[in-house]
């Protein structure tokens, strides 16, 4: 029997529902947890980030306009497709994070469960966070949460899949669209997640995944006028390493364009180094969903 030729995979970006290479033509070497070469990944440039924001903005009207129930169904479909790719995710996670096969499978289980958990929140978050406010007059006064817009997400550096899902799912569950900078050194599970999103009814542009150097692309997203919120989860370095992302500077740049900021867990000021939280812990409520929603309050006359 003739030996088969290798069919090697090109890991690309996921922008606007398509898989482009970086506009810059750059790529970088991705290694496994022991430092052995695994693959080349696309190294996104600031123009890729700009294109991703355009795609996310274009997708926002459709995604935020869909009913919460419909969004929940679409996100559940993502979990179904992830389940079908369980083995592939487990292999990528084991390689990236240096886990045993059994531990990697458990991480993938938790990631899929986390996705389903957030999918369930889509049509419930307005009931929890919305209110019929008491007012002194013959009016209904209603507060409802609405998606904020385009969210730039710095995905966690260490937890390449569970952490990624834990920051992306709440953004899209709330109806916002996002541009995600995947873990710099462990980007490959994010590329596989992009392939899942592309084949599971999520409209192109709702989630855009960029691989590359976080500290290089993040400032362009933080200062971008058309980015409405910034999640700094990925500002925490890999365990035992020095921080490469100055999240205080990113927060300052974001403030200049009135961008909402979610600080990295556990650090009250940018002097304190950020530490990545344990993503296996189930969130105690839809805090991350609500972090990317605005509250709209309307007055409406009472009928007689």
């Amino acid at each position: 029997m003739a030996a088969r030729l290798d069919v090697r995979k090109t890991y690309k970006l996921y922008v606007g529902g398509k898989f482009p290479r970086s506009e810059s033509g750059r790529s970088y070497e991705v290694t496994d947890a022991k430092g052995r070469f695994v693959a080349n990944a696309a190294m996104a440039s600031r123009k890729d980030a700009r294109d991703a924001v355009l795609a996310a903005r274009a997708a926002f009207a459709g995604w935020s306009g869909a009913t919460a129930y419909n969004r929940g169904q679409v996100l559940y479909r993502v979990a179904e497709v992830m389940e079908g790719r369980h083995a592939q995710f487990a292999e990528e996670v084991a390689r990236a994070e240096g886990l045993t096969a059994a531990k990697a499978r458990a991480v993938v289980d938790a990631a899929i469960d986390r996705w389903v958990w957030y999918a369930g929140w889509t049509d419930k978050v307005a009931q929890v966070a919305g209110a019929a406010n008491p007012v002194a007059g013959p009016y209904f006064n209603l507060s409802v949460p609405e998606p904020t817009g385009v969210v730039a997400v710095l995905a966690p550096q260490a937890s390449s899949l569970l952490g990624l899902v834990s920051v992306v799912a709440p953004v899209v569950a709330g109806g916002s669209t996002c541009v995600v900078l995947a873990s710099e050194r462990r980007p490959l599970p994010a590329v596989v997640l992009g392939e899942v999103l592309a084949t599971s009814d999520v409209p192109g542009g709702v989630v855009n995944l960029l691989t590359g150097v976080t500290a290089e692309s993040a400032p362009w997203l933080a200062s971008h006028e058309d980015v409405d919120a910034l999640d700094l989860a990925g500002a925490a370095p890999l365990p035992g390493e020095d921080a490469t992302v100055d999240w205080g500077a990113l927060e300052a740049a974001a403030a200049a364009t009135l961008t909402r900021v979610v600080r990295p867990a556990g650090s009250a000021t940018s002097e304190e180094p950020a530490v990545e939280p344990d993503w296996t812990v189930l969130p105690d409520g839809p805090r991350r969903v609500l972090a990317f929603m605005e509250t709209k309050t309307v007055w409406h006359p009472k009928g007689r």
Binding site: R50, V53, W220, S223, H224, E225, D226, A253, A256, T257
Partner: peptide
Amino acid sequence: TGVYASADR
């Protein structure tokens, strides 16, 4: 300005 602009403005 050196930063990407928004059509909202």
